[in-house]
C-alpha cells in the first residue's frame, strides 16, 4: 500500500496556463467556479426554482417532470435560496431565465427548448449518449 496521500488542494496548484479545477464555495472557490463544478460534475444538472419534490415555478416543474418521465438522474440547485447563484447562473449560461438545464456540461436551454427537444426525441438522444 502506498503511503502517499493526495490532498484536494493539490489539484489547485496548477502551473501557468493551466486552469485550476472548479471548486464549490465550500471548497474555497467562487460562485462561478461552483457552477462549473456542478454542471461538469454530473451528466445532468438543473438550476431551478424550488426542489424536484417541491418546485416553486411551473416552468421548473415541467422540466423536472420531463426528466423524471425519462428516468434521468439529475442534480439540481434551488436558486431561490441562493441570490448570489441566481445572478451568477444567468451570466454563466448567457441565459436570462430559470430553469436552466445542463447536459454534459452544456446548456440545453430553459423550459421551452427542453419541452421541444423532448417532443422531437432530441432530449432522449442527449440523455442516452454517453459522455
Amino acid at each position: 500500500m502506498s503511503e502517499k496521500i493526495s490532498l484536494p488542494i493539490a489539484a489547485n496548484q496548477s502551473g501557468p496556463g493551466q486552469q485550476s479545477a472548479p471548486r464549490t464555495r465550500a471548497q474555497g472557490g467562487d460562485v462561478m467556479s461552483e457552477i462549473e463544478a456542478e454542471v461538469k460534475g454530473q451528466k445532468v444538472f438543473l438550476y431551478m426554482k424550488g426542489t424536484p419534490d417541491f418546485p416553486q415555478c411551473g416552468f421548473s416543474a415541467r422540466v423536472v417532470q420531463i426528466l423524471q418521465h425519462l428516468g434521468a438522474e439529475f442534480g439540481s440547485s434551488d436558486i431561490l435560496v441562493d441570490p448570489e447563484k441566481r445572478d451568477a447562473v444567468k451570466v454563466y449560461g448567457k441565459w436570462p431565465t430559470i430553469p436552466q438545464l445542463y447536459i454534459d456540461g452544456e446548456l440545453v436551454g430553459g423550459c421551452d427548448i427542453t419541452t421541444e427537444m423532448f417532443q422531437s426525441g432530441e432530449l432522449q438522444t442527449l440523455l442516452g449518449a454517453s459522455k
Binding site: K94, W95, P96, L107, V108, G109, I113, E116
Partner: peptide, 11 residues
C-alpha cells in the same frame, strides 16, 4: 442550435 440562437439574441 436553438440555445445558441437565443443566446445570440440575448447578447
Amino acid at each position: 442550435s436553438r440555445v445558441r440562437q437565443h443566446q445570440a439574441v440575448y447578447e
